[in-house]
Simulated scan of single mutants.
Amino acid sequence: MLIHPWDAPEEDRIWRAWLAEHDFGQLAVNGLPGEPPFVQPLHFAYDADAGAHGEVLTHLARPNPIWAAVEACPTVLLSVVDDYVFVPGPWQAPDDTPPEHGTPTSFYTAVQLTCRARIVDEAREKAALLNRQVAHFQQDGVTTPATPGEPPFGRMLPGIRVLRLEVSEVRAKFKYGSHKPESAQARTAEGLRARATPRDQAALAHHTRHRTGTGHGHPGPAGG
């Protein structure tokens, strides 16, 4: 993932705060020889306090074909993308350019976690980790914990495997046009307000936060 300097978060707390509210992503695993990479959509729980870069907990069904690939190469990548919108070219056109000559682009947030995966099959550890993940989502406290050999979930434990992902590297990108001239940023903000889809509102919050207010921007590509 290409990250221009103006798209990089200034501090780790920025991507950590965003990731705390986004817990669904895609786990990419190297394919076995002769096969393409394996990509698995999944919910996960991120623990920022575990290790230098945090830890991810998730689980999948035992029949999932991902396991052989993880065992062959435990270095995996968890990709989380959201708050994305299409930005029409006229919104981004410089003042001395006809609106129809403006370059369309995409706004989005992306966080990629490179991890070392460990598969957990031991019943008690698996249950404890699963309970931690479920507690992240069901915070009302009414869920019965999974306990090996006990109803209602004990009999289901053999049917899943837990993945414990130790995060070794984080790459984060907040692409919201902060390098553009102030006039283009203001026009884009107004366009997002007027279009007003749910993702436009999230993108507008990022765009407003990252606006430079300098009246000029870095020369750079519209893509990325």
Rank of each mutant, 00 (worst) to 15 (best):
N131Q: 07
T212E: 02
G223Q: 13
E169S: 06
R116C: 05
L32A: 12
P63Q: 08
P151R: 06
G154N: 10
A203L: 06
P94E: 12
D49A: 14
Y46R: 06
D200R: 01
S106V: 12
N131D: 12
G54N: 05
A128T: 13
V76S: 00
G223A: 09
F107S: 11
V70C: 02
I119L: 14
G191V: 12
H4I: 00
V162S: 01
P104H: 09
V29R: 00
A205K: 13
G159A: 15
G102Y: 11
G51W: 11
A48P: 12
L130N: 04
V80N: 03
T75A: 12
Y84P: 01
G177A: 11
D200V: 02
D83A: 12
G149S: 04
K126F: 07
L130G: 12
Q201W: 03
W15V: 02
I3D: 00
R171M: 07
A203F: 04
K180F: 10
H43M: 11
L129Q: 09
P33A: 11
D121Y: 03
A135F: 05
E21G: 13
L19R: 01
H218Q: 10
A45Y: 02
G141S: 07
A172G: 04
A45Q: 02
L113H: 02
P181S: 06
A135E: 15
N64A: 14
G25R: 01
L130Y: 13
